[in-house]
């Protein structure tokens, strides 16, 4: 029967389990890598909202403002906000 298997196997080659494995891995790994680096969905909206509030009181240009969400040691999320104040505002 080994002879028969030998010829049959050639035909089956198109969808091997190894190629299925590769395809599944490529999808899941890409997905997980994406999550690893991704900022949460709400971050752009949060940024907008914070800027609106800030601009009620002080002048903040887009360049002097940055927001960053960082994950420290796996269990601590740190929201970091950097606002560069201009000289006249500091003295107020």
């Amino acid at each position: 029967m080994a002879l028969l298997d030998y010829f049959l196997r050639k035909k089956e080659k198109q969808v091997t389990t190894a190629s299925k494995a590769k395809e599944r891995l490529q999808i899941i790994v890409a997905h997980e890598r994406n999550n690893r680096n991704k900022q949460p969905d709400y971050l752009p909206q949060l940024t907008e909202d914070i800027l609106v509030v800030l601009r009620k009181y002080i002048h903040v240009s887009d360049e002097s403002f940055s927001i960053n969400l960082d994950n420290k040691d796996g269990d601590l999320n740190v929201l970091e906000l950097n606002i560069e104040l201009h000289d006249e505002q500091k003295t107020n």
Binding site: E12, A18, A21, K22, L25
Partner: peptide
Amino acid sequence: GEMLSVEDVEDI
């Protein structure tokens, strides 16, 4: 076709 090849793993 039963096991991921070196190239497959390198690709991923």
